[in-house]
Amino acid sequence: MIHLICSRATQEQIDEMLETLGLYIKLAVDIQRGILAGGGEFHADCETVLLEDGSEQVNIWGADWYPDSQTVTYESLINIRPRQNNRSMEILDLGIREQVANIVQNLLGGV
């Protein structure tokens, strides 16, 4: 199940987002709005939820969150953006990575 998370996630939301993959949650994070969509099988599905909610694609980055270790990884097909100087599946810009990590921690961390 994919959830749009605009404020601190509940344990129930975390559990529902974990249903698909078990150990981790695929995310799309809007670094402009400070929100995320998580769950499901593909980052692109999460990205679609954000786009339908009014996010702009240039502000959305893909990541994964591992609740057991409270860690974020920054690799997704939606991150390949030559026009934004990101030619890799991994988020290369350390500033963007930090923004993603902070949003994930604020909305999902410690639950």
Rank of each mutant, 00 (worst) to 15 (best):
G54F: 03
N59G: 03
G22S: 11
H43L: 07
S7L: 06
V49H: 08
Y24V: 01
C6G: 14
L107N: 07
T20I: 00
D53I: 06
I25V: 15
E41S: 14
I60R: 01
M1A: 15
L92H: 14
Q84V: 03
E16H: 02
A63I: 07
N86L: 04
E90H: 15
L23M: 10
N59Y: 05
E56S: 14
N59V: 04
R33H: 00
V58N: 11
I78C: 08
Q99P: 01
E12S: 13
M89E: 14
A101Y: 03
N85R: 11
D53F: 15
I2L: 06
A28P: 04
H3C: 00
Q11A: 04
R97N: 01
G54N: 11
G62R: 00
L51R: 08
Q11P: 07
A44F: 15
E75V: 15
G62F: 02
N79A: 07
S76F: 09
L108D: 01
L50H: 03
L27C: 03
G109Q: 01
I91K: 07
E75S: 14
G54K: 11
M89G: 12
T48P: 00
Q105E: 10
S88K: 12
V29E: 05
D64T: 03
V111Y: 09
E75N: 15
L94K: 13
D93C: 14
I78Q: 04
M1P: 10
I96E: 05
Q13C: 04
S69L: 05
I91G: 07
S76T: 04
V72I: 09
Q84F: 12
V49G: 10
F42R: 13
Q99G: 04
Q13F: 04
L4R: 03
M89N: 13
E98C: 05
A44K: 12
Q105D: 09
A37Y: 10
M17R: 08
E19S: 09
W61P: 08
I14A: 00
N59K: 06
V111I: 12
A9L: 01
S88N: 13
L94P: 12
L36F: 08
V100C: 09
S76D: 09
T48C: 07
L51N: 05
I96W: 09
N79T: 09
M17F: 03
I14G: 02
P67V: 01
G110C: 08
I5K: 00
E47Y: 04
G95V: 06
